[in-house]
Amino acid sequence: MRTEPVELTNMTMILDPKSQQVLVEYRRDPHWPGIAFPGGHVEPHESVTHSAQREVKEETGLTVTNLQLAGLKQYPLEPRGRFICFLYRTTQFQGNLQSSAEGPVFWMKLQDFYQNPQLAEGMEDLLNIMVTDFNEVIYQGEQTYFF
Results as ranks from 00 to 15, higher is better:
residue 66 N to I: 06
residue 40 G to T: 04
residue 26 Y to H: 15
residue 135 N to H: 14
residue 8 L to T: 10
residue 60 T to R: 00
residue 60 T to L: 02
residue 39 G to A: 09
residue 78 E to N: 15
residue 71 G to W: 13
residue 101 A to P: 03
residue 10 N to I: 13
residue 33 P to I: 01
residue 7 E to Y: 15
residue 95 G to N: 11
residue 68 Q to D: 14
residue 123 M to D: 04
residue 98 Q to K: 12
residue 71 G to N: 11
residue 21 Q to K: 10
residue 135 N to L: 02
residue 4 E to F: 14
residue 110 L to E: 06
residue 58 E to D: 08
residue 57 K to W: 13
residue 46 E to Q: 13
residue 54 R to A: 00
residue 57 K to P: 00
residue 13 M to Y: 03
residue 114 Y to H: 08
residue 5 P to W: 09
residue 26 Y to A: 11
residue 85 C to L: 13
residue 95 G to I: 10
residue 122 G to V: 08
residue 108 M to G: 01
residue 59 E to D: 07
residue 75 Y to T: 15
residue 135 N to Q: 08
residue 103 G to L: 00
residue 16 D to E: 08
residue 65 T to W: 03
residue 55 E to D: 10
residue 8 L to I: 11
residue 29 D to F: 01
residue 84 I to P: 02
residue 115 Q to D: 14
residue 37 F to W: 12
residue 12 T to G: 08
residue 49 T to N: 07
residue 91 T to R: 12
residue 37 F to M: 08
residue 70 A to Y: 06
residue 12 T to S: 14
residue 136 E to P: 00
residue 38 P to E: 02
residue 68 Q to W: 07
residue 42 V to P: 01
residue 116 N to Y: 07
residue 93 F to A: 10
residue 117 P to W: 09
residue 48 V to N: 00
residue 26 Y to C: 11
residue 44 P to K: 09
residue 100 S to I: 10
residue 90 T to D: 07
residue 1 M to V: 14
residue 10 N to G: 07
residue 103 G to Y: 00
residue 114 Y to D: 08
residue 123 M to K: 04
residue 93 F to M: 05
residue 58 E to G: 05
residue 53 Q to K: 14
residue 100 S to N: 04
residue 104 P to I: 05
residue 3 T to E: 13
residue 48 V to Q: 03
residue 12 T to L: 12
residue 18 K to T: 12
residue 126 L to N: 11
residue 83 F to V: 11
residue 139 Y to T: 12
residue 84 I to E: 13
residue 34 G to H: 07
residue 60 T to H: 02
residue 23 L to T: 03
residue 116 N to M: 02
residue 141 G to V: 08
residue 124 E to D: 10
